[in-house]
């Protein structure tokens, strides 16, 4: 395996995805769950642009990446607003604790 820029970017994308998945598995705080989703999405945006670059259709890669960025921002905004409301109502942000509460 030679360390060309393409291979390094691929390893970087895989690394970011791995750290994001790991964080998603071990995290219990609702705000931090949103953060881990953000890390995953950053890896995906990078992968989309990279795919556009190597296939010679960078415009298409940029277009889909822009859509993903907008959707990701909306997810973050709604997720954070939800976390604030959950904190106000239940007094905690711990996901396992919230899932056992009624109401």
């Amino acid at each position: 395996m030679n360390f060309s820029p393409l291979n390094i970017i691929l390893i970087g994308i895989a690394g970011l995805l791995g750290v994001g998945f790991y964080g998603l598995l071990i995290t219990r705080n609702l705000i931090k769950v949103v953060m881990m989703l953000q890390i995953l999405i950053k890896a995906v945006v990078l992968a989309l642009v990279f795919a556009g670059k190597i296939s010679g259709n960078l415009g298409l890669g940029q277009s889909t990446a822009a859509t993903v960025i907008v959707a990701d921002t909306i997810v973050a905004v709604v997720g954070l607003a939800l976390a604030v409301q959950v904190r106000r109502r239940f007094g905690t942000l711990d996901v396992p604790q919230i899932s056992t509460l009624k109401g």
Binding site: T27, R28, N29, I69, L80, A81, A83
Partner: peptide
Amino acid sequence: VGAGLVTVLMVYALSVVGEDALDPTSV
């Protein structure tokens, strides 16, 4: 968006939630 808007939103959410926004140990 990523480094600006989302960071501002996160800090705002943390300011509302308060200092108990610590991450407990994983399940």
